[in-house]
């Protein structure tokens, strides 16, 4: 793999819920402007790991995170970090689309409004640009002021992506964004992500091996809270180093 600058790096990240340790020390780097796929069977800790990267684990009661996570050479669990601002830079899209009960327009501009954006023209511009980037502008441009919850699941998911993009993030985290969608809607999201890669660093959790091989540059395989192996996607799929990875790829479990 060609050496590139890393956007995010983690070192020996462990997570416990209460007394139970779910993630046992994950060390991984996320290269800038690349797509990294996190794979592994259900319950292996993919979501747990992803939530560490923008500190949304902080919202859950009784969670302890240890280890180091650096974003642009800064420890995101450090004492001086502004968590709210951090989450604008590292946005997240969930498995179930989570639009607010507002119009499409207000959904996309919401985080900007909360940061004090008042100007109409600027807001219009951001909404259009974000919806275009999320490849949904043509479908919704005539009904921007209708409820976002009236859209189909795939459309809602892209509106949520647009809301994240409106905050001008550096990194986009996606937790199984297509597993609740039909194949056509999933394909649209995949195309969208490939187009976004030039400007953003993307981390996607996926159950779908084809999806990982189609869109990702780097793949990491997790099992039972351990990182089994990580590397260029082609290499992982063609000749995995670990037996467990090869078993997983051959559908032996998960």
């Amino acid at each position: 793999m060609i050496m590139t600058e890393n956007s995010l790096t983690t070192k020996d990240v462990k997570v416990s819920y209460g007394k139970y340790e779910s993630l046992h020390g994950v060390t991984l780097a996320f290269p800038k402007n690349k797509i990294t796929a996190l794979m592994g069977p259900s319950g292996c800790g993919k979501s747990t790991f992803l939530r560490c990267l923008n500190r949304s684990n902080d919202l859950l009661p009784d969670v302890t995170v240890s280890g180091e996570i650096e974003f642009e050479q800064q420890d995101i669990y450090g004492p001086k970090v502004n968590v709210v601002a951090l989450r604008t830079q590292i946005g997240m899209v969930y498995q179930q689309p989570t639009p607010f009960p507002f119009s499409i327009y207000e959904n996309v501009i919401f985080s900007q409004r909360m940061m004090g954006m008042r100007e109409r023209r600027q807001a219009d511009e951001i909404v259009e640009r974000s919806l275009r980037q999320a490849a949904i502008w043509d479908e919704v441009k005539d009904r921007l002021h209708r409820s976002a919850q009236s859209l189909s699941g795939g459309q809602q998911q892209r509106v949520c992506l647009a809301s994240v993009l409106a905050g001008a993030p550096e990194v986009i985290l996606l937790d199984e964004p297509t597993s609740a969608l039909d194949p056509i809607a999933s394909a649209k999201i995949e195309t969208t992500l490939l187009a976004l890669k030039d400007s953003y660093t993307i981390v996607i959790v996926t159950h779908n091996l084809q999806q990982a091989s189609r869109i990702s540059d780097q793949t990491a395989f997790l099992l039972n809270g351990n990182l089994i192996e990580a590397g260029a996607t082609k290499e992982i799929f063609m000749k995995p180093r670990e037996q467990a990875t090869s078993d997983y790829l051959n559908g032996k479990f998960g």
Binding site: S56, L59, V84, R87, F100, F110, S111, M114
Partner: peptide, 25 residues
Amino acid sequence: EARMTAGVSLGVSKWHTITKVILPE
């Protein structure tokens, strides 16, 4: 509950998510 995680993941403060999303709803 997804409202809170959704708001916070967009870089909106907890307080704003409560007052602008959860309470109106």
